[in-house]
Design a binder for these strands. Structure first.
Lengths: 226, 226
DNA sequence: GACGATTTTAATCACTCGATAAATAAATCA
DNA sequence: TGATTTATTTATCGAGTGATTAAAATCGTC
């Protein structure tokens, strides 16, 4: 009870293991990452993984719990702001369209920033790998954040485009929007040499947001109305 | 000399190993795939991998050689047709823009078909994994096909948009186009439940091409001209 | 059918893996 | 302090890894 917050004895070890695991798992994937390397990177003993997380799989899932909470810190305020704005406005269709476009820009800007953070290099790879072929850890991601964000964005696209929210067309277009951002991480092997970008710095992120906005406005033009 | 084509004795074994390796590597990744499982799936002995390909890594690279040749069969004719069309036309800027848009649609349609083929489920995962974090095998892909296709598409986008081919803006927009297609494979974990698609059948591919064309035309409008 | 070359197989190597039990250390509380 | 719980470490287990060797089988050719 000396310090506030009451940190239990093993908290430091657990934290160190999760941080190291994000790096190692993110760099080499689940299978190629040995528990010994992770433990070594964390400065603790290999057996500590079994003690604190039950095993390698348990550590992997704990890592995703950590990632989701980090993503939530960044995205939830933005999402709530967008939802609040949407509920407030009740003008003409054109006005709501206008608003939805601004909110899409807001949400995707946050998304681009999130994926471009310095500390993100580790966990972004993990998230994308899990996207590609989901393991049980994927549900932690989807239920915790991705699913909710996707529903919000789909709704915004629906308002911005006039497409029925439940239609396949609307959902396809929503996914395509997502792809326009993800591609710079997912197809890094191709985009990176093509753009001479060896990393996503502030300059690159700015350009990305800029170009995304242009593409967004073009895809769902403001002027067109009923 | 009994059969034509002079198939050497070990060709059947090599072919079986490559086919099995595409499935196993594609499903579980390089590290999680054991040479014994691959050999078993191919119906040959594990030592045959060492004999024919030098080792696990050699087999992995041979797989990518095979994939590239398969992709080339599908994409090279389309690419050559596009290049030929571009060189022929020399009308007004508006006409060239028009043509470039049609060619973009052509190339990406082929791309969508390629990634949607029944037999593709195996190697698509492999290609995307390699995109995400390139190993030496990535160069086989990039030099063999991806790089060339990307240059072609960049040129088409340049003509269609009026952006300088060498500009970052043009290349970012090109990558974004690519992302609009890739997302359905790369973020399958998210798009698949969102769209209630458990696989990419003919209906899904048709809808994809349809929506992509709409998004493409919107992003690079035909009407606008000098 | 015998020969040499190519291919396939069985057997084994040294090694790394994740998990775990037993021993030790540290903190907590009576 | 001594007892008890909690945490960390050391050491080891069996399973599975990729690679390699040497023997066996298969082939074309004479």
């Amino acid at each position: 009870m000396s310090v506030v917050n009451n940190p239990k004895r093993g908290d430091a070890t657990r934290e160190a293991l999760i941080q190291a695991a994000i790096d190692v798992f993110g760099h080499d994937g689940f299978d190629a990452s040995s528990t010994r390397r992770i433990a070594n990177a964390a400065g603790v003993n290999q057996a500590a993984i079994g003690y604190h997380f039950g095993g390698k799989q348990g550590l992997y899932e704990a890592v995703f719990g950590h990632i989701v909470s980090q993503m939530q810190i960044r995205m939830v305020p933005v999402a709530e702001r967008a939802i609040a704005s949407l509920e407030l406005i009740q003008g003409s269709a054109a006005e709501r369209r206008h608003m939805a476009l601004d909110l899409l820009d807001l949400v995707f800007s946050a998304f681009i920033d999130l994926f471009g953070e310095e500390s993100a290099t580790g966990w972004v790879r993990l998230v994308l790998r899990e996207q590609q072929d989901p393991t049980p850890a994927f549900h932690i991601l989807y239920d915790g954040l991705m699913g909710r964000m996707l529903r919000l964005v789909t709704h915004l696209v629906s308002v911005a485009s006039g497409l029925d929210e439940a239609s396949e067309a609307c959902r396809v277009r929503t996914s395509m929007l997502l792809g326009q951002v993800l591609v710079f991480h997912v197809a890094r092997g191709t985009t990176s040499p093509h753009l001479n970008w060896n990393s996503l710095g502030q300059d690159q992120l700015t350009l990305l947001k800029q170009q995304f906005r242009i593409a967004l406005e073009a895809q769902f033009p403001r002027g067109v109305s009923t």
